[in-house]
Amino acid sequence: MIQYFSVMLIAVGIYGLLSQKNLVKLVVSLNIAELGVNLFIVSLGYVAEGKIPILSPIVNSSSMNFVDPLPQALVLTAIVIGVAVTALALSLVLKVKESYGTIELDEIRGDNS
């Protein structure tokens, strides 16, 4: 079920990328799409009634009913990369604002012609 939700989020993000003209809104759409991807990955590791994948006093038997920890590790890395890319994108938006005086794509194109 949650997989459908995350695919919807990706679709919303891509729709935003195609329809928006504001550079900051484009960055937000990008983040929404990335969020969808991350949710999808986390949902793959889900196990109903699953236990934490660490041997501890509470979970001391090595039954097979563990949550898959690898997708969570992947998502952690993907989130960090996403933050870095967002920071870079916003700094580029700042640079565009400095040189064009606007962050609306259609106004920038209007200036060129």
């Binding site: 550079l23 484009l26 990008l30 990335e34 996403g82 890319v85 994108a89 580029l92 565009v96 040189s99």
Partner: peptide, 13 residues
């Protein structure tokens, strides 16, 4: 800068 921004959006997706 604008070209790089476009590249960033496409590349991240």
């Amino acid at each position: 800068k604008l070209a790089s921004f476009k590249y960033l959006i496409l590349g991240s997706i």
